[in-house]
Design a protein around this nucleic acid. Structure first.
Lengths: 205, 205
DNA sequence: GCAGGCCCTAAGCGCTTGCTCACCCGCCAG
DNA sequence: CTGGCGGGTGAGCAAGCGCTTAGGGCCTGC
């Protein structure tokens, strides 16, 4: 119930109701079994309708994945861009970015799993579109780190490699996070923000 | 050619020749498209034989995945266990563990991708067996970190959470590493070992 | 009261999938 | 020379796949 509500939360602006139920069902199914192991019958069943009804709202199964992937990536990018353009020191902005990104991957770990690990199933043109968004997300983090280095706040061996590592840490949360586990999304976000600040240099704390 | 050789390197003790070629083909196919999107016809074709020949050497497609997953996890565990039981300070041992683990995930990123991201396709009993190996790998890292904390070498906010983060960093290399990219496996290993040492506390460098 | 559009279903089409089966070839011992 | 045997093939089966099609209720406007 709570997990379902949390999954649904991000999709509330999709109409009509049936189309939204299908997206929520697809997110859950894709996250559980993977895109290729999920059948359209399964998605339709979870959404409480017949297999054929899916095709009234979406042309193909891949279009559902594309919808999920696009919205998820846009939300990620918005979060990271906001942190980049926010106020405070580079350390503040990096911590904000990591905290938000990690918390999102924990709270919406089903969506996160689809967004991060089912890219390869997208059609080539959809994939190309998504890659652009991903590159922009990477640039947001890289900019914050480069700012910190320029301001003398950070001391990193290599900006690009460190950017990759920070993104790795955040993204991988979607793989392992378990809502039944000991840690809340907030706690993981706080812990990971702390660890990242330690990575980028001396005297952050 | 070099990538194929690198992929094959880890499987040289499998006999007969046809069985080994099938494993190598399966690793490449599973890494490229994922387990469920890979057909037995594709695997057999890459190994240079007819679809039916696959079933002379392996009972099912899942058995191939299990073979790959088991060997990969055993190799990972051996690496981490060796680092844990090696000499030197906790910092030395942690750096050795991360360097080796990351380098392996970069060099054998195809195998790594299958090992880390196709777990869910295993049959329940095989999955349970693999989970045990994964828990042991996690324990190896946790032990090194706990040793460092006990010795006063490390200063971490939370041993378990930090262990998770270190593993995340290493595992995620298999997802993004590209042999055509700028970084060699050795370079990534060195960079990541440095970043991890920064994470676990003060004055490592 | 009923025409028209919207949302949905039952049935099923064409195709691909994992896997099997009957048969075959080259090698080596007697 | 021959008989058996381990490793291979071509053809194909049953099941499940993504997706389509013909048709049916229900709400709304006139």
């Amino acid at each position: 119930m709570s997990a379902e509500a949390a999954t649904g939360e991000a999709w509330e602006d999709i109409t009509p109701d049936a189309a939204r139920r299908l997206v929520v069902a697809a997110v859950q199914a894709f996250a559980e079994r993977g895109y290729h192991a999920t059948t359209t019958r399964d998605i339709a069943g979870r959404a409480g309708m017949s297999p054929a009804a899916l095709y009234i709202h979406y042309k193909t199964k891949e279009e559902l994945l594309y919808q999920i992937s696009r919205v998820g990536h846009q939300r990620s990018l918005a979060m990271l861009g906001e942190a980049r353009d926010g106020g405070g020191t580079a350390a503040d902005r990096l911590a904000t970015a990591v905290r938000a990104f990690v918390r999102w991957h924990a709270e919406h770990h089903t969506t996160g799993r689809v967004v991060q690990y089912e890219l390869g199933a997208l059609a080539p043109d959809h994939y190309a579109e998504i890659v652009v968004l991903r590159r922009q997300s990477e640039d947001a983090i890289r900019t914050i780190i480069a700012d910190g280095v320029a301001a003398g706040e950070f001391d990193v061996p290599e900006v690009s490699g460190t950017t990759l590592a920070v993104l790795s840490l955040c993204i991988d949360v979607a793989r392992w996070f378990n809502p039944a586990g000991r840690r809340t999304p907030d706690e993981v976000g706080a812990l990971y923000a702390d660890l990242v600040l330690r990575m980028v240099g001396p005297g952050q704390r």
